[in-house]
């Protein structure tokens, strides 16, 4: 360092920050995709239900 003492190594702190950022932003991305997949599945299920029902009694909304 500037006063002649050796510069301490802060790698553990740096890695803690990068790890945390990866966990939070990566986690948010995965969570988003996982929820989107689940919701799309439910949307498809509705589609099927509807078609089945409209087969049963055509004329119903």
């Amino acid at each position: 360092m500037v006063d002649g003492t050796p510069t301490p190594d802060y790698t553990p702190y740096v890695m803690a920050v990068y790890g945390l950022a990866a966990l939070v932003y990566g986690g948010l991305t995965l969570l988003g995709h996982w929820r989107l997949k689940g919701l799309k599945q439910r949307l498809d299920d509705f589609g099927h239900d509807r078609r089945e029902r409209s087969d049963d009694n055509s004329g119903d909304t």
Partner: peptide, 15 residues
């Protein structure tokens, strides 16, 4: 390395 902070300056790039 930063002249004061050494390699802890890399935290800046996420912060």
């Amino acid at each position: 390395l930063d002249f004061q902070q050494g390699n802890s300056v890399r935290i800046l790039y996420a912060h």
